[in-house]
Simulated assay, not measured.
Amino acid sequence: MLLADRVIAAALMALSVYFMVHATALPIGWNGATGGPGGGAFPFWLSLIMLLAAGGILIRSFVSPGRSPDSFFDMSMLRSVLAVVVALVATIALIPVVGAYIAIPLFLFWYLRLYGGHGWVLTLSITLATPVFLFFFFEVTLRILLPKGITEPLFFPLYAMLF
């Protein structure tokens, strides 16, 4: 598992640096004109957090005693990772069609109930609360519109009430 930790941590660190470089194309500080963070603030700072976390994993892989350095992935772990990757790709493909507020809860439902086997209360509470939180956080608080796909006309009454 040490090799897997190191490879994945290095890949995440490289991806973090890539995201940080591209986030600096937009302002990453406080934007006085809009009274909020610049367009690159959240991608930059979240990428920095990801870089630090992956760096911690990489350091731990060198100083952690008693871990087996010879195995990378067994087949059951690889199947699990591939199932989640396929579900994420399907979710990303669905976002332009049905919108983020449908695609993300569908992924959460699949991940929590079907894949994870969690109970109905947890599954439904997270699946239903997440799009509400995302709407108020991104669209109302930050004024960042998420893709809505075919569901966009359903949001017109909400926009009329809130804006």
Rank of each mutant, 00 (worst) to 15 (best):
F73C: 04
I59S: 05
L48D: 02
T151I: 15
P147V: 07
F73K: 03
M77F: 11
S80V: 01
G66L: 06
G116W: 07
V17D: 06
T24M: 15
A87W: 00
I126H: 00
R143Q: 15
V89L: 13
Y101C: 15
A129Y: 02
A25N: 08
L146A: 11
G66C: 10
L12Y: 12
G32L: 15
A83Y: 04
S76Y: 02
G116R: 09
S125G: 04
L154G: 14
S47F: 01
L146C: 11
A54M: 10
S47L: 01
T91S: 12
S80D: 06
W110V: 01
Y18V: 12
G116V: 13
W120G: 02
S47Y: 02
M75H: 13
M1C: 03
L15M: 08
V121I: 12
H118M: 11
W45G: 14
S71A: 13
S61L: 04
L124M: 09
D5Q: 12
S71D: 09
R6N: 00
M161H: 06
F135K: 09
V84S: 00
P96L: 07
M20P: 00
L78A: 15
M161L: 15
P131R: 06
Y111G: 10
S61H: 03
A54D: 00
L26G: 00
G66Y: 08
I95A: 06
I144N: 02
H22C: 00
A93S: 05
L134F: 11
G149R: 02
R67P: 02
L122Q: 11
G116Q: 13
F44Y: 11
R67F: 00
G35R: 03
L122I: 07
I8T: 05
Y101N: 14
I28R: 05
T141Y: 14
W120C: 01
L122A: 03
F107A: 05
R6T: 00
T24S: 13
T24E: 13
M1L: 04
N31D: 13
M50W: 12
V84W: 01
R6H: 04
I126S: 04
P157F: 04
Y101S: 13
G66H: 09
G55H: 09
M20H: 08
A83G: 08
I126N: 01
I126G: 00
T127A: 10
H22R: 07
P43A: 08
G40I: 00
A9T: 01
A53K: 03
F44C: 10
D70S: 14
L158M: 14
Y115K: 11
T151Y: 10
A11N: 06
G119Y: 10
F163R: 12
A87H: 02
Y18I: 12
A93P: 06
L162P: 03
F155Y: 13
I95Q: 02
S125L: 12
M75D: 14
V97A: 05
P65K: 01
F136A: 15
V121Q: 03
S80P: 00
L94D: 02
